[in-house]
């Protein structure tokens, strides 16, 4: 696998487009914008470059890969493809954005300020927490959000995955490589996970489903020793002994940088106009999981990145000549 290499920053007064985010949405937007000669600058993050897929293993549902592809490899390929057409990639974190004016300003962790006529906001989503006693305190000490990172440490242990979606099924199945026993804890009997993922988990003799249960506390002093479960039907509580608990209950759109600047939906995603990527602010576009809590697939995020790049292209073409003249000033 090719390592990520920081691209030397070049001083350019005003860019056409800055892309914030380096998941499938950000990189696909970059591929399209670069091929449209918009010379995009992509802010990839210092430690999360490549996004959520960097923490996955085999991706079996991305079209064009009949034998599957490793998540990190897919993202390295997208990065390479974006760079090939002239995307400039910076491995740093955005600390603030000013989106209200005609010129958008993006400030990075290293203090650099970049300016552009448009911004594509593709920051994805962050793991949702259970919000129960013990969860934060024991995070990294038996509480985990990343099975591929931490599963190794639970060899021959009894552990649980909380959640009922595809990620929960994938994590549970993956964790049986290490653990002797994996409980899947879900608040109802209706799992959101696709049938193939559910069937795979149900067929695994090491996995046991505990349905109609919620975790109300993670127990342990230095390391996790168990969880307190509450039955969602009769309200009764019980304690389950565990060495680890993996939380996969969904994600929340990462919008904190744009609060108070662009409109959000009731679900907390960035509001866009119809099927477009246009936010409430002219020149600001959004793509990927930051506007989608429903589908959240690599391929839907990539499609969304395409929409954003095409909308940017269209928007730039519609600007009066003086704005564009500033680019060559």
């Amino acid at each position: 696998m090719r390592p990520l290499v920081a691209v030397q920053f070049q001083e350019i007064s005003l860019r056409q487009v800055i892309i914030i985010g380096s998941g499938p949405a950000g990189y696909t937007a970059a591929i399209y914008a670069a091929r449209a000669n918009l010379a995009p600058l992509l802010i990839a993050s210092s430690v999360e470059a490549g996004g959520e897929l960097m923490k996955t293993t085999e991706v079996e549902n991305f079209p064009g890969f009949p034998n599957g592809v490793m998540g990190p490899e897919l993202m390295m390929n997208m990065q390479e493809q974006a760079e090939k057409f002239g995307t400039e990639i910076v491995l740093d974190d955005v600390v603030s954005v000013e989106l209200l004016g005609d010129v958008k300003r993006v400030t990075l962790g290293n203090g650099e300020v970049h300016e552009a006529l448009t911004v594509i906001y593709a920051t994805g989503s962050a793991y949702r927490k259970l919000g129960v006693e013990g969860e934060s305190r024991l995070s990294g000490y038996g509480v985990s959000w990343c099975a591929t990172c931490d599963g190794f440490f639970f060899r021959q242990k009894t552990i649980a995955v909380v959640g009922g979606g595809d990620s929960a099924m994938e994590e549970a199945t993956f964790l049986t490589k290490f653990a002797d026993k994996v409980y899947v804890i879900h608040r109802s009997a209706n799992l959101r996970a696709s049938k193939i993922m559910q069937d795979r988990a149900r067929a695994n003799p090491k996995i046991e489903f505990l349905l109609h249960k919620t975790v109300t506390e993670v127990v342990g002093s230095d390391l996790v020793t168990g969880v307190v479960l509450q039955d969602t039907v009769d309200g009764s509580t019980s304690e389950l002994e565990l060495s680890g608990v993996f939380i996969a209950i969904g994600n929340d759109p990462r919008t904190h940088l744009v609060h108070g600047q662009v409109d959000l939906t009731a679900e907390g995603t960035i509001a866009v106009d119809g099927r477009s990527s246009r936010t409430s602010l002219p020149g600001v576009f959004a793509a990927g999981d930051v506007l989608d809590v429903t589908y959240r697939q690599a391929v839907t995020a990539a499609a969304s990145g395409t929409v954003a790049a095409l909308d940017v292209e269209h928007y730039l073409a519609s600007l009066p000549a003086p704005s564009l003249a500033a680019l060559s000033a």
Partner: peptide
């Protein structure tokens, strides 16, 4: 008792004086 990586532990005089969990910006 490593159960999550990256885990960075600072040692001074044979003792752990600081633990930092997870990849974070510089």
């Amino acid at each position: 008792q490593i159960t999550s990586i990256p885990m960075m532990k600072v040692f001074k005089g044979g003792e752990v004086v600081k633990s930092i969990l997870g990849a974070k910006p510089k």
